[in-house]
């Protein structure tokens, strides 16, 4: 029966555990990749955060929800706050230059052989979105999974 198979998420399964353990770092790297490229290519903080949350959700199914909390170390509520703080900080930085709230500030670096790196406050803002989406999604899933 399907229902019983679903109930097995608590039970140790070698295959699922191995897959989850291998997939978690891959998904995390992929989510960071999405976050980083978001400004120019498809991706961004929202998608990245969801992918990272999905990675940990897989981990929670293979092991215990508790193990995910242990792996993350930081309290998810702290991450939510940190995300909002990042987004707010990104908005405030522009004000230091006497520009309106949320004005983007950019710094660019011209490296050798045409390498150019541009980074600005919108990226910090996106990091905030990433953190909030990730921590909210994951904490909803985890607290649901911990329900008895």
């Amino acid at each position: 029966m399907v229902g019983q198979a679903v109930g097995r998420w608590r039970i140790y399964s070698v295959i699922l555990a191995s897959v989850a353990r291998a997939m978690l770092p891959l998904l995390l790297v992929f989510s960071l990749f999405l976050l980083w490229r978001g400004h120019n290519e498809p991706g961004g903080g929202f998608t990245g955060g969801l992918v990272a949350a999905a990675g940990f959700a897989l981990y929670a199914m293979a092991f215990q929800p508790r193990s995910v909390r242990r792996v993350i170390r930081v309290d998810l509520r702290t991450l939510m706050g940190a995300g909002l703080l990042c987004a707010a900080a990104a908005g405030v930085i522009g004000m230091a230059q006497n520009k309106p709230f949320m004005t983007g500030v950019w710094i660019s670096w011209q490296g050798p052989e045409g390498i150019a790196v541009e980074i600005g406050t919108p990226f910090l803002f996106d990091v905030g979105v990433y953190l909030v989406v990730f921590s909210v999604t994951l904490s909803i899933i985890l607290s649901k999974a911990e329900e008895r």
Partner: peptide
């Protein structure tokens, strides 16, 4: 806005304030 992904630029820059409100609501709802 120094970005070629318009969807993302709208989210984090042009309409950043909306997104700010949305993630705040999201965090509170969470």
């Amino acid at each position: 806005a120094h970005g070629r992904n318009i969807v993302n630029v709208i989210l984090v820059d042009f309409r950043g304030l909306d997104t700010m409100g949305e993630i705040t609501v999201l965090a509170l709802a969470g």
